[in-house]
Design a protein around this nucleic acid. Sequence first.
DNA 1: AAAATTACGTCAATGATGTTGACATATTTC
DNA 2: GAAATATGTCAACATCATTGACGTAATTTT
Lengths: 174, 174
Amino acid sequence: MKSTLLSAAAVAPAPPADPRAPTPALPDFELIELLFFAYRDFVGEPDRLLERHGFGRAHHRVIHFINRHPGLTVAELLDILEITKQSLARVLKDLIHGDFVEQKAGAEDRRQRLLFLTDKGRALADGLAAMQHQRITRAVAAIGPEHRPMIARFLAELIDKERGAAPATALSTP
Amino acid sequence: MKSTLLSAAAVAPAPPADPRAPTPALPDFELIELLFFAYRDFVGEPDRLLERHGFGRAHHRVIHFINRHPGLTVAELLDILEITKQSLARVLKDLIHGDFVEQKAGAEDRRQRLLFLTDKGRALADGLAAMQHQRITRAVAAIGPEHRPMIARFLAELIDKERGAAPATALSTP
DNA sequence: AAAATTACGTCAATGATGTTGACATATTTC
DNA sequence: GAAATATGTCAACATCATTGACGTAATTTT
C-alpha cells in the first residue's frame, strides 16, 4: 500500500470559483498539494545524487548559484539564499575542501571572495541540473511547449514581490 | 541591496530549444530557479504564522492532511508524508498536546488511531490554507483562470509516477 | 592619518526536522 | 494459540537552519 498522495490530489476536483459566493471559496487544495508533491519530487531526485558525495540540499543550492553566476561574492550568495553567514559557511567549507568550489580575491575589492566552481564542481552542478531539466522538460512537453511562458509567469507570480526588483544587471549571466 | 534572485531568474532568457542541437540543450535554469523561489515564498508566509504557535513546517503538513482527510490513520499519514514514524510522532504529540488534533480509536479496527482536527486545529489549518490559496489565486488570475488546468497538469507531471496510482478511493474526500 | 564601515571568517550554543533500529502493547487474523 | 498488524516510544544521530559575539583585513569617510 503505497502513498495515496497523487490520487488524493488528483481526486479532489477544482472548486469552481463562484463569483457570487458570499462565503469564502474553498481553498484551492489541488494546486496547494500539487505544489507540495511536485517540489518534493523535484528536489528528491537530486538529493539522492548529492548523498553519494555526502552533500545535502544546501550544497545543491550553493553550487547551483555559483554555477549560474561565476565570480559571485559571498554577500551576494547570502542575499540570494536568504540564509545566515553561519549556514552558508558550513556548506561552503565542505565544497571548498572537497574541491568543488574555489575562491579568488576580488580584483577591485580585495576583501571580497569571488566564488567559482572547479571542473569537478561544474560536473556535479551540471549533473544535478540535468536531472531537474529533464523532469521539467517532460512536464513542459506534456502540456505543450507553447504553454511554457504561462508556467513561468505563474511561478513568478507566486514569489514575494517586495524583493529584488533591484540591480537586474548585477548578476546578469556573462 | 536586496537579493537579485528574481531578476536573475527573469533576466535569463529561455534557451530556445534547437531541435537539431547535437550538444545537449542548456538546462532550463529559468524554471528550475522559479520553482525554487516560488516554493520558498509559498511556504514562507505560512511559516511565519506557524511560528506564533511554536510550530514548524512539519506541523503544517500534518494538520493540512488531517484537515483534508478527517479520520486519517497514522499509517496513511506516514504514507502521504513519506517520513518516519519518529518524525511524525514528535509533531503529532505537539499538536495533540496543544489541542489542535485529537485521536479516536477506529470503530472497525480498534488498533487504529483516527486523526481529527479540533475546532482550534481547523481554524489554524484554514488560516494557513487561506494564505496559500490567496497566493495561488493571485497567480492564477495573472495568467488567466482558463490556464489553471495547464498548471495542474504541469505540476502533476513533475511528480514521480511510480507512486500512488493505487487506491484512488481510499482517501477520497467524504 | 585616524576613524568608521564593510566583507568575510569563525566560535559557541541552540532548535527543527529528518534518520535508523530496537522494543512494547494492543488488537486482529489465521 | 500463534502470527501479523497498528501504533507508541526510546536512544542516538545527521543536516540545516538560527542568533550573537568577536576578529581580521581592506576600503571608505572624515
